[in-house]
């Protein structure tokens, strides 16, 4: 902290955690108070301490880890396949106006369809294992990456292309040195959204029918009206999503070193 701001330290200068932790504690306290005094029925709103009990049990007994592992694998696979497919098809259609014109209405229709309705079909096609969830995630990730890549390729700087051609690039080299890097940069710029979507696909898939995964735990608990376990599952999913997003942020930072960012100067 600089010397100037030491004198008149406002609330904005405090580390955010100092403010955020009391907010969380307050909310949990409110939850506890309202359910204890039966303002809110415990049956529908659960009890914070029982929820923490479930969490404690899951993590100390290690029961949760196989489920988390399955959800993670589904998320990663859905992202990888969805992104690859989106990248390849996005590149192909962007560089091929005829194919693009033919495919346009189908792409729009497919994107407009609510993907969740595909879950039962995927369950029938791929069974109740991880692949039906991966498939659902792929359908979500694909369109994000596809539209990003497609737009990105069409907006590649014409000067960059002209320069590469003057320097002697043939069609293949142009693809490798100009189109592909610029397309991947668009994939990475949509990384947060697409990884999030892969995660949504995995969890929704599990929730609609599965034998493992965090979504499955929630489904099971809901079946027996165990609202505390449902809340515990939700908390685990939220924490998991946050960790995933952090990890994506780290990866993004390493891969996009060439990207200008705002305010890169170091504070002295």
């Amino acid at each position: 902290m600089s010397r100037a701001s030491k004198n008149r330290r406002g609330i904005a200068d405090l580390p955010s955690a100092v403010l955020q932790i009391p907010i969380v504690c307050g909310l949990i306290g409110l939850w506890y108070g309202l359910t204890e005094t039966a303002v809110l029925p415990k049956f529908f709103f659960g009890e914070p301490f029982k929820v923490f009990g479930v969490l404690w049990h899951w993590f100390t007994s290690g029961e949760i880890f196989p489920h988390l592992g399955v959800t993670l694998v589904e998320t990663v696979l859905a992202f990888v396949f969805g992104a690859l497919l989106g990248l390849v098809i996005g590149l192909w259609l962007a560089l091929n106006p005829t194919a693009s014109r033919l495919a346009d209405p189908y792409i729009k229709a497919a994107n407009a369809m609510p993907r969740v309705v595909l879950a039962p079909i995927f369950a029938v096609w791929f069974g109740l294992g991880i692949w039906s969830k991966v498939a659902l995630g792929v359908t979500l990730v694909f369109f994000i990456v596809f539209f990003n890549v497609y737009q990105g390729i069409r907006e590649v700087s014409p000067v960059l292309l002209a320069n590469a051609r003057v320097l002697g690039a043939n069609a293949r080299q142009l693809l490798r040195t100009v189109y592909l890097p610029s397309a991947t940069s668009w994939v990475f710029s949509s990384l947060h959204t697409s990884v999030g979507m892969a995660f949504v696909g995995a969890v929704v898939g599990e929730y609609l029918g599965s034998a493992r995964g965090v979504g499955y735990l929630i489904l099971q608990a809901e079946g027996v009206f165990d609202i505390n376990t449902v809340f515990a599952g939700m908390l685990v999913l939220t924490a998991f999503a946050l960790v995933l997003d952090q990890a994506v942020g780290v990866v993004e930072k390493r891969l996009l070193v060439w990207r200008p960012t705002h305010g890169e100067t170091e504070k002295l």
Binding site: V159, L160, A164, S182, W258
Partner: peptide
Amino acid sequence: GYMFQAESLMPWRTALDNVIVGLEF
């Protein structure tokens, strides 16, 4: 050889990699 009026370096390549891209081709 053509030196453009507008920016023509590839933003994802370092200065050195930009300079040698033609040799790479």
